[in-house]
Amino acid sequence: MEKEILLEVKDLKKVFKTPKSKLFEKQSGVRAIHEVSFKIYKGETFGLVGESGCGKSTLGNIIGGLIPPSEGIITFENKSISTLDKKEAKSLSRNIQMIFQDPYSCLNPRKKIGWILEEPLRVHHIGTKKELRRTVYEMLHEVGFDKSYYNRYPHELSGGQRQRIGIVCSLMLHPKLIIADEPVSALDVSVQATILNLLKDLQEKYQLTYLFISHDLNVVEYMSDRIGVMYLGQLVELGRVEDLYNNPLHPYTRSLISAVPNVYDDKYKNKTSLKGEVPNAMHPPAGCPLCTRCPECMNQCKTIQPPLIEIEHEHYVRCHKYL
């Protein structure tokens, strides 16, 4: 059966211009996203992993429509996002919603929970005042809150509770795609599990598609069907979870997986830890982005950028070793 494509990203690029410090200085830029292409199928969870500064959150923000891309095409349900007019863009924003990392700053401290949850519906002119209230009650009940939370302020809630409110808020418009940007990284371990379970339950109930962004490999592995690994703005490996974890191809993916401390692994893992640090995104290496740290770096790695190629079914890698 051919899977239905919900979202497709093609050759996406994003350069952040740095402010000029001198008047006649040539403006430089930070390469946040470089030639990223992938598809997300309907109903799946697409995980995006990478370390801080690799551009995974920027990618989420671009798809969520918060910042415009510098180059490239994003298609949602076969419609190109960049060519939409204002009205279509608004209806699109109904279909793509976001969940953010920090539960403490994602809710407006001056507004009551009820108001916050009604806002998406109000903005899109759905329902009368009474209906809004009823919908909010229903949704609150869905994630295990009683009606009294309608009149509470965010500061009365714990971190996990706020994150649940954040999730409910993104669900109010019944979107098709939810971009979850590090939804559990700021939470304690015992609360994390609750949120992950909730996300899974909701996915089943509302047939949601997730773009799940995280730096925590254990969590991404648990949540995702397919995973993209990002390094310095590029997608270096892309594949189904089983393939990626059982047979990681890119040296970066390999070291990333081996670097994660795992409670369940009994044997001491053979560490292929990377040396050095992530290079400055303002001056990325000319060739493969990993060439400064890669243990298997070859000559051509330093000068030529490897393309993303398909090694086995649905398993792509961007590395000279496999050319």
């Binding site: 015992s190 599990a193 379970n197 899974k200 648990y222 795992n262 409670v263 369940y264």
Partner: peptide, 15 residues
């Protein structure tokens, strides 16, 4: 409550 690769995708235990 930590995701366990061996147990696969079953629900996590949440305190």
């Amino acid at each position: 409550s930590i995701p366990n690769p061996k147990k696969g995708k079953s629900r996590l235990y949440a305190i």
